[in-house]
């Protein structure tokens, strides 16, 4: 310890990396990560298994169907939700699980006073933890997508093309953003609430409303404002459907579904109201990835913005809090 004065001439930047490395290693060794991997993989395998049956039948009838591989992730035959729909529902849970106890656990464990007394900037703590959460989410989503894609390849006996892989990768990035939005929300709750259980419950309540009940709510609103019956004109029915859709767009899940739909379906020409089931035998013009992404530009922008707002909110609140609060 002769170099004590030299020791102190350290570079204080990148403190967030130290925090992130520790948090990520905690996440990767946690039981919750294993649990989520299992849960999401199971859901993914079920959905891909269900989707692969009809695809096989269709593919044997018309071997030229474009992007057969990607259909694995998007079609939902026999009322089994598609992989994308499963991620839309379970993804928020992933974000909540890695975020709900970010700061309040440091408070209840009494490690926060010690942590802020280390030579790191205050925001290194929140930044590092957010990055670690995104890391854990990326690990789970990537491994699940890889497992599910591998299983689908075995079932279908086709390998994805380069363009399909690029679309799958875009889907993965989009999913990470979508889940990070929920991570940011959970992290904000972890700062605002004293107890982890309170934050978890609040986050789960928001999740229930925004992913499961939003369909009921939007239907109710649409039917109240534009009531329709069997005699209604097509305009009336469309007005009802449009309002229903717009209310559902309050939910990040809806935006995520619209965006992933065009990203994973080269033949999808719009994000609005379309016929629900694609005709597997039809062969409309396929768009390239850039065109598909531009179709869903505003959904992508809103998701990214919401994610940023959540993180910025937790950042601002955390930096203003007193250490002893």
């Amino acid at each position: 310890m002769t170099t004590s004065t030299l020791d102190h001439e350290v570079n204080f930047r990148a403190g967030w990396r130290i925090v992130a490395a520790k948090e990520l290693s905690d996440h990767l060794r946690s039981a919750r990560l294993l649990m989520l991997l299992f849960l999401v993989s199971l859901a993914g395998l079920v959905s891909v298994h269900a989707a692969s049956g009809p695809i096989r039948d269709a593919a044997s009838a018309a071997s030229t169907t474009p992007s057969v591989f990607l259909l694995l992730f998007t079609i939902s035959p026999n009322r089994v939700p598609s992989f994308v729909e499963f991620i839309g529902i379970l993804g928020p849970l992933l974000g909540i699980v890695f975020g709900f106890d970010t700061i309040n656990s440091e408070r209840s464990q009494r490690t926060l006073p010690k942590l802020v007394a280390q030579p790191i900037y205050r925001d290194d703590i929140i930044n590092g933890k957010f990055v670690a959460g995104i890391g854990a989410i990326t690990v789970v989503l990537t491994s699940v997508t890889a497992v599910v894609a591998g299983y689908g390849m075995l079932r279908l006996g086709v390998a994805p093309s380069g363009a399909e892989l690029a679309r799958l990768f875009s889907f993965l990035v989009l999913s990470v953003v979508y889940v990070s939005l929920w991570l940011g929300f959970a992290q904000l709750l972890s700062i605002l609430t004293r107890r982890a259980a309170t934050a978890a419950l609040a986050a789960l309540a928001a999740w229930l409303v925004l992913t499961l009940f939003i369909g009921l709510i939007s239907g109710l609103v649409a039917d109240t404002v534009h009531p329709v019956d069997s005699n209604s004109s097509i305009e009336k029915v469309l007005e009802n459907a449009r309002l229903d859709l717009n209310v559902r767009r309050i939910s990040p899940d809806q935006l995520y579904q619209e965006a992933t739909k065009v990203v994973l379906t080269p033949t999808q020409q719009s994000t609005g109201i379309t016929s629900s089931q694609p005709d597997l035998l039809a062969m409309p013009t396929a768009l390239d990835l850039r065109e598909s992404l531009s179709l869903a530009w505003w959904q992508l922008a809103v998701l990214l913005a919401a994610c940023t707002v959540m993180f910025a909110g937790s950042y601002a609140v955390f930096l203003r809090q007193e250490v002893r609060a």
Binding site: F12, D26, Q109, T111, P113, K114, Q118, P119
Partner: peptide
């Protein structure tokens, strides 16, 4: 930051990462 790198602090009722 410079102070914190040269001052060791043991808070009241210090906590640890118990796991």
């Amino acid at each position: 930051l410079r102070i914190k790198s040269r001052v060791g602090y043991l808070p009241d009722e210090v906590g640890f990462y118990d796991d």
